[in-house]
């Protein structure tokens, strides 16, 4: 059999990638420099106007914060689930999955109901006599953070859980009998072995955050718009070239972000192992 036919099982997937990912990507790349003729003016505009760079920076910042907060919250939750008896694990995972079955749009609207002027929280607080006038929560940066973290948290928990459930708990016991206190065993064995999966989860959350636009549009203020909102705006204005240039800047920032996360993880691992890493 000729070499090229050997991987025929991959062909459908490759064809999908080619048609639905690679070709559009090339198209965007072309649009960003060919609108209307070969030019870099879209990129120049992006780099020169402070507002675009500010939004880019804001997008990266929000995505990092969301990824880190999700990881910090999800790690102990996943640990708790992994330690539970099998049947309880199944139930807890089901609870984690339920919000994933609802669309982001609906969940963002739900947050408007919760955070609004006459929303659930304000009514409760005023009913209890704790505040006189409604607190402004909707259309603020914290609102965007809270909603994005709530929306993305299940993904991080599930990724962490699957990494942790692959760890042989016999290894932790081995560490104990060799002289490790519970914390030492966690630090030197459990955390290093679950770190890869956690980082994978962080990268997924980070990338999804970079592309968020419904949530900041519905819950945030003017200054909470993310790069994806700019893309959407320019597409509706039929500024195809500029929209494509923003998309490429977003892609570039995402790649840099992932590299930074990976490097940070490696440093963390080294710090955790302390004297163990020679």
């Amino acid at each position: 059999m000729p070499r090229i036919f050997r991987h025929w099982m991959l062909w459908p997937a490759l064809a999908m990638l080619l048609v639905f990912f690679l070709m559009p990507s090339v198209d965007i790349l072309r649009a960003s420099v060919m609108d209307p003729e070969l030019t870099f003016r879209h990129f120049e505009r992006f780099l020169e106007r402070a507002v675009y760079m500010r939004v880019l920076w804001h997008t990266v910042e929000v995505s990092f914060v969301v990824a880190i907060v999700c990881a910090v919250i999800a790690y102990p939750v996943a640990y708790f689930i992994v330690q539970s008896p099998r049947r309880v694990q199944f139930l807890l995972l089901l609870l984690i999955f339920i919000p994933l079955w609802m669309s982001i749009l609906i969940r963002s609207y739900a947050w408007m109901v919760v955070l609004g002027r006459e929303g659930v929280i304000n009514s409760l607080l005023m009913g209890a006599g704790l505040i006189e006038t409604p607190v402004r929560m909707l259309f603020t940066t914290p609102a965007v953070y809270v909603a994005m973290i709530q929306i993305l948290l299940p993904i991080q928990i599930v990724t962490c859980y699957s990494a942790m459930s692959d760890i042989d708990l016999g290894l932790v016991r081995a560490a104990r009998v060799l002289g490790a206190s519970p914390w030492e065993a966690t630090r030197r064995v459990f955390i290093p072995l679950s770190l890869d999966g956690t980082i994978t989860g962080m990268i997924i959350v980070f990338m999804l955050s970079m592309g968020f636009f419904i949530t900041p549009a519905l819950l945030g203020g003017r200054r909470d718009l993310l790069l994806a909102n700019l893309i959407e705006f320019n597409v509706t204005q039929l500024n195809w070239g500029f929209a494509a240039a923003i998309a490429l800047m977003l892609l570039l920032a995402a790649i840099v972000g992932i590299v930074v996360i990976r490097l940070a993880a490696r440093l963390l691992l080294r710090a955790l192992n302390g004297a163990l890493a020679r």
Binding site: A175, V177, L178, R278
Partner: peptide
């Protein structure tokens, strides 16, 4: 006493070597 205070060595059926550390470590 917890395991780490008993000062016993143990070899397990599944070896339980730490996969993220080399033989020396």
């Amino acid at each position: 006493l917890p395991p780490e205070k008993r000062d016993v060595g143990m070899v397990f059926q599944s070896y339980s070597l730490f996969p993220h550390l080399n033989v020396f470590d």
